[in-house]
């Protein structure tokens, strides 16, 4: 006879995604994007006049094309610059932009940036939120009051302004952007974790662990943390889409990563000047990539939330 094993959060989530065909499709797309991002991390040695170099990634080796003079439509044989046609060095599946760069390659370069922006700020915010949320919920008293005061103040500053203010005093860069996004987004999760810790703290198993002589640190990190972790997972998946989109918006208002970083925001940025001239492929390339990744992630995140969120499961 088998004992009934209470199903873990993870197994519930897996079951839920297996049942949901939209979520499965979303997961496949996310994996595909993740593969592109990974290709962009793996360095490949190349030889040049100065010897062996590790500056290029696998993605560069596969997709980078010769730079043309200017715009050219998708799959064209010739490009147009100052009303004069010029021959192209290679075929470009999605055409080239004003600098003659391959649009498909630029869009693929944006994938790694998107993953960094979608994940790193959540991790930073998660660390802050877990630390302060656990402390506030577990100890209560003045610690709780102080932490609540800090997040009360931070949450009353509209996020976009907080972001702008922080990015204005920092140097431009992808990692600075991640820090700013992380610092502005930990408050909501902190509040959730505090509430959940308050609930978990009073449970019998905590009392039992305490009776056995477990230290506060052990109680917090061995016994309480695993029971609030699902909140962090839900929040991270739900935040991913918003973060990826905010990268595009921030780049757009001049607060994005440094030039040279692959960025869909920068590709979309020039579109209002290009569209009236009939140049649609640059905007479309970036938009479609952005849309597909965000949509796929939204579908997965919804399924995950439905499976893991205790607030929804009660209903």
């Amino acid at each position: 006879m088998r004992l009934a094993v209470p199903s873990s959060h993870l197994s519930i989530a897996v079951k839920r995604i297996k049942k949901d065909s939209l979520a499965k499709a979303g997961l496949c797309v996310v994996c595909l994007f993740a593969l592109v991002a990974l290709l962009d991390v793996v360095p490949v040695p190349t030889h040049d006049a100065y010897g062996l170099r590790w500056g290029r990634t696998a993605l560069d080796v596969i997709f980078q094309k010769d730079v043309e003079k200017s715009y050219s439509p998708p799959l064209a044989r010739t490009g147009i610059l100052n009303r004069q046609e010029f021959p192209l060095k290679a075929r470009h599946l999605l055409g080239t932009n004003n600098l003659g760069e391959d649009v498909l390659y630029n869009a693929l370069k944006g994938v790694r940036t998107a993953f960094i922006i979608g994940i790193v700020p959540s991790v930073i915010a998660g660390v802050f939120a877990i630390f302060f949320g656990l402390l506030a919920g577990f100890y209560g008293g003045w610690i709780d009051d102080a932490i609540q005061y800090v997040y009360q103040v931070l949450s009353s500053i509209p996020a976009i302004l907080l972001l702008i203010a922080m990015l204005m005093i920092m140097e431009r860069g992808l990692w600075q952007l991640c820090v700013a996004l992380g610092v502005t987004s930990w408050v909501g999760l902190c509040r959730l974790i505090r509430g959940e810790t308050l609930k978990v703290r009073q449970m019998e198993y905590i009392e039992a662990a305490r009776a056995l002589g477990a230290s506060d640190a052990r109680l917090l990190f061995r016994h309480i943390l695993p029971n609030v972790m699902h909140l962090v997972i839900i929040e991270m998946t739900l935040d991913f889409s918003g973060l990826v989109m905010s990268e595009a918006i921030l780049t757009f208002i001049g607060l994005g990563a440094e030039p040279g970083t692959g960025s869909w925001g920068r590709m979309i940025m020039t579109a209002d000047r290009e569209l009236p001239n009939g140049i649609w492929w640059n905007l479309t390339g970036a938009s479609v990539f952005l849309f597909l990744l965000v949509l796929a992630f939204n579908l997965v995140a919804d399924a995950l939330r439905d499976a893991l969120d205790p607030r929804l499961r009660a209903g």
Partner: peptide
């Protein structure tokens, strides 16, 4: 599903 699709389009695209 349409809502999720609408939510997945970045506001820049709506404007452009």
């Amino acid at each position: 599903f349409v809502c999720v699709i609408l939510m997945s389009i970045v506001v820049l695209n709506y404007i452009i």
